[in-house]
Design a protein around this nucleic acid. Structure first.
Lengths: 339, 339
DNA sequence: CCGAGCTGTGGTAACGCTACCAGACCTTTC
DNA sequence: GAAAGGTCTGGTAGCGTTACCACAGCTCGG
């Protein structure tokens, strides 16, 4: 039977074979395992390939070999530039190994994450990288059944599904809170992103509370705020927290670019930072170092997380050991002028 | 012949068919064209699917139907958050249509872009989105032969390959330069990202020069700088340009976050902005609006570019008209305190 | 100088799905 | 009441590649 849906006639491996006067099998080998064919053959095939402009069909290859060279990455949002470093790290390593990256976002929703996981598994990706560590039951079951390696990178968790490469959001937030206390601040506010479906935010708040407990300070709801990301939110947080408790002496912004907005808001109000209010941030984005005052922050090895994830995945896909792995890449408190 | 490479036995459409007591063809139809089967059949198949946990294999589907639901996107860098909005825009629209996104970066190199294009075409993506408008000869030939729709989104160009959805970098840079002149500035510096392999930077400089010509101002090499992106570069630019020409009264930063660094550097030096030096930026990132002084900028419809690209691609993939298309989504000068 | 052990090549049968056609069954029409 | 048409289902033959085996030709040791 003949069927032709496209007007473009594709060049198949069969065509290369005919042109070179060999079998398709030999062409396939010459391209994928050059050391398995004679030198002369390799050259002959290469010439035929470029003569007729052959581009191997990886769809067919994947189907036949049951091996894919595509890794799926699912992040809460593509807009967030924090993930950008991780994405670049993953991409760099994958690219060097001849693999590719398929990206989807879950929009900070577990239901959407489940849908994305299902979609990616339908594409038969060879591995999954997830930013979340919480998943719906069906998502977990899907992944289990698919049997592909899964890396979770958003935070360290004791209940990792398979491979877990990250840092502890809990410990990082706790460390920063303790750091602020050590500097003498006592009324420390906390601003997080929305907690719903977001294990990182939840962990960070837990870390903050744990630090307060250790310090013998009572948590105060008036000092804790949950706001969507964005610079505007940072400004808003300053207003609301300061009004809620006039003795407020520091705010720890545990997410996104909130702290930037806060510093700018203080400038606008003429409040000296840290004289009137100390400000600390999470995720050491470039600009914090350049601001005036330069902003204290927790530095997360975003890029390294991406690179290591890809490396470990590639090992797994390559058929190496299949034991669960946890890698703690740590964090670092960067003390600057704002605290 | 039996072959089993994975230890995970996959569930095939055949299994669903057996379980539901129908033919594989009917299962296939029930899943993809529910209106082509009876209501009772649809339900029966759905039950079988969830009973045995069937996840369609899109690899096999694509091979069989010669149709892919994956779109490739190639950007210069994944790190740059400017692209993030575009990526999100594309992703949103594709997702709603059941398509997926494969992403690669060219590292600002035409050679790498060519390699990425080849790799994506091997994956038999159904369409290509490129940020560049310049390509190697082989890249162009590859795309021509592949016959898939291609959208270029980096800038408007008269030599678009196929579909071109963007804004004019030339006109935007020219407009901002004229705007600065209209405000009274006469010694206007220009800072761009490296010009090599970067058509956007080249266009922006051309636009700047064109504006100077129209104004009867002579271009001065001491006023033009080419720097890598980053906040640090912005600070460096202030130092170098001011030293090169003490009469410098404005700088147009035609790329990235350079302007932010410049404003912060002026704060550090105690230079009033715009009193001592006016500063204008390209790409209206959130923070510019919140800075003190708020920074004048060119606003580019990044997200809209992504959305429209995806929409037009989907139309094409769906089999609609195949005429080259150009869409100018324009830009906007946002005047603020810094100029 | 013959069989064992390489190396290099080719033939065949999948991989899991869908396009296409055929045909069973039911409704409509004159 | 039979032909014409519609709706629904199934069988067959690929899609373009690769895994597996077979085997030809050659080298080498006893």
């Amino acid at each position: 039977m003949r069927r032709r849906r496209s007007t473009h006639e594709t060049v198949r491996i069969q065509d290369v074979a005919r042109h070179a006067g060999v079998s398709p099998m030999t062409v396939s080998r010459a391209l994928r395992q050059p050391d398995k064919v004679s030198e002369a053959m390799r050259r002959r095939v290469e010439e035929a390939v470029s003569a007729i402009g052959y581009l191997p069909n990886r769809i067919a290859g994947s189907l036949s070999s049951s091996r894919s060279n595509v890794v799926a990455l699912i992040v809460p949002s593509l807009r967030n530039s924090l993930f950008a470093n991780t994405v670049q790290g993953i991409s760099d390593v994958l690219h060097a190994a001849g693999h590719h990256l398929m990206i989807a976002d879950s929009g900070y929703s577990l239901a959407d994450e489940e849908a994305a996981i299902a979609a990616m598994l339908q594409q038969r990706v060879c591995a999954l990288v997830l930013h979340n560590t919480r998943h719906t039951a069906r998502a977990t079951s899907l992944m289990k059944r698919a049997g592909v390696p899964v890396v979770e990178i958003g935070t360290l968790t004791p209940d990792a599904f398979d491979i877990n490469i990250s840092y502890s959001n809990h410990d990082a937030a706790k460390a920063m809170t303790l750091h602020l206390a050590r500097l003498g601040y006592r009324r420390i506010g906390l601003v997080t992103l929305p907690l719903a479906d977001n294990d990182r935010s939840i962990e960070r708040r837990a870390g903050y509370l744990s630090a307060l407990g250790e310090l013998g300070l009572a948590p105060d709801p008036r000092l804790m705020l949950e706001l969507p990301g964005g610079i505007g939110s940072g400004a808003e947080a300053v207003a609301r927290l300061a009004q809620g408790d006039p003795r407020l002496d520091a705010i720890f912004f545990a997410g996104d670019v909130l702290a930037i907005g806060a510093v700018l808001e203080c400038q606008r109000r003429g409040w000296p930072v840290p004289g009137r209010l100390a400000i600390a941030s999470f995720d050491d984005v470039d600009i914090l170092r350049y601001m005036r005052p330069a902003v204290t922050s927790v530095r997360i090895p975003r890029s390294e997380i991406g690179r290591r994830s890809a490396e470990i995945l590639l090992e797994r896909v390559g058929g190496r050991a299949a034991a669960p792995v946890t890698v703690d890449l740590g964090f670092e408190i960067v003390q600057r002028e704002s605290t």
